[in-house]
Simulated assay, not measured.
Amino acid sequence: MQVEKISIIGLGLIGGSLAKALKEKLGIESITAVDINEKSLSQALKEGFIKEGFTELNESVYNSDIIFICTPVKDAVEYITRLHGKVKAGCILTDTASTKGEIIDYVNSLDNPPCFIGGHPMAGTEKAGFSSSFSHLFENAYYIMSPSKNCPEESLEYLAEIIRGIGAIPIKLDSKEHDIITATISHVPHVIASALVNLVKFSDSPDGKMQTLAAGGFKDITRIASSNPKMWENIILSNKEIVKSTLNKFTETINTFIEYIDNENSNGIYNFFDSAKKFRDSIPNNRKGLIEPQNELIVDVVDKPGIIGEIATILGNNGINIKNINVSNSREFEQGCLRITLPDSGSVAEAYELLAKKGYKVFKI
Rank of each mutant, 00 (worst) to 15 (best):
V191Y: 07
D75T: 14
Y62I: 06
K240G: 02
P189Q: 10
T313L: 13
G319I: 05
Q294D: 12
L342S: 04
G167R: 04
F116Q: 03
I69M: 06
Q43V: 12
L338H: 01
M145N: 09
G336T: 02
I162A: 02
F116E: 06
K358V: 12
V34P: 05
F134R: 09
S194R: 15
K20D: 06
L196Y: 05
H178E: 04
T55Q: 11
I340K: 00
W232T: 05
P229Q: 14
I166S: 03
I163K: 01
T94K: 03
D174N: 10
G129S: 00
Y352G: 08
V362W: 01
N329P: 08
K304S: 11
Y352F: 15
D65L: 00
T125Q: 04
H136L: 10
G309Y: 09
R82M: 14
V3R: 08
D274F: 15
V188P: 00
S155V: 10
D274A: 15
I50Q: 00
I261A: 08
I311C: 00
E332Q: 13
A183V: 04
E296M: 11
L173R: 10
G359Q: 03
L213H: 08
K230S: 14
P293S: 03
P206D: 02
V301Y: 05
N63C: 04
K23H: 15
I192N: 03
Q43C: 10
K230Q: 15
I185T: 03
A21Q: 04
S275E: 13
N228Q: 07
A141P: 02
D75N: 14
K20Y: 06
E353K: 15
E292Q: 11
R280S: 06
G359L: 02
K219T: 13
F363M: 08
F54E: 08
L45N: 08
G85E: 07
S133C: 05
Y360I: 01
I308K: 06
K5D: 06
L93I: 03
K357P: 00
K25F: 11
I236L: 15
K357F: 09
N198C: 09
F279K: 14
D111E: 15
V61D: 01
I171N: 08
L18H: 01
N267F: 13
G346V: 08
N140R: 15
I66Q: 00
V200F: 12
A21N: 03
K219D: 15
I8T: 03
H84F: 06
H136A: 11
F363L: 10
E139T: 09
Q294I: 13
N112H: 14
D303A: 13
L22T: 04
D105L: 09
L13F: 08
Y106Q: 03
D75C: 13
D220Y: 05
K358I: 13
E126P: 01
V348G: 00
E353T: 14
I14F: 01
T313E: 12
T222H: 05
G359A: 02
G306K: 13
L110G: 04
F333C: 10
N263A: 12
R223H: 08
I314Q: 07
G119M: 04
N324W: 10
A97H: 02
L237H: 14
